[in-house]
Computed example of a mutant assay.
Amino acid sequence: MNKVRENRAEQEFELDVDGHRAIAAYQREGERIVFTHTVVPREIEGRGVGSKLIRAALDSARDQGLRVVAQCQFVAAFIRKHPEYRDLLG
Rank of each mutant, 00 (worst) to 15 (best):
V34Q: 03
Q64N: 12
T38G: 00
A9G: 13
F74L: 05
E29V: 14
A56N: 02
I79T: 03
G90S: 04
L66C: 03
M1P: 12
V17P: 13
A57I: 11
V69S: 07
Q73H: 07
R67E: 09
V39L: 10
S60K: 08
E43A: 15
R21G: 04
E6W: 08
S60F: 12
R62P: 02
V39W: 00
E6C: 13
L15S: 08
R32F: 02
I54A: 03
Q64F: 06
G19E: 07
P41R: 07
A22V: 10
G48W: 00
R80S: 14
S51D: 09
M1A: 13
A57V: 10
E6G: 01
A25C: 14
Y26C: 05
K52T: 14
H20D: 13
R86E: 15
N2C: 03
R80Q: 15
R80F: 11
K52V: 14
D18T: 08
I23R: 06
L88K: 10
H37R: 13
D18H: 07
R8T: 11
E12V: 11
D87P: 02
R86A: 15
D87Y: 04
A76I: 00
D63T: 12
G46M: 09
T36H: 01
I44H: 01
I33D: 00
Q73W: 11
R28T: 13
Y85K: 02
S51T: 09
T38V: 06
Q64S: 13
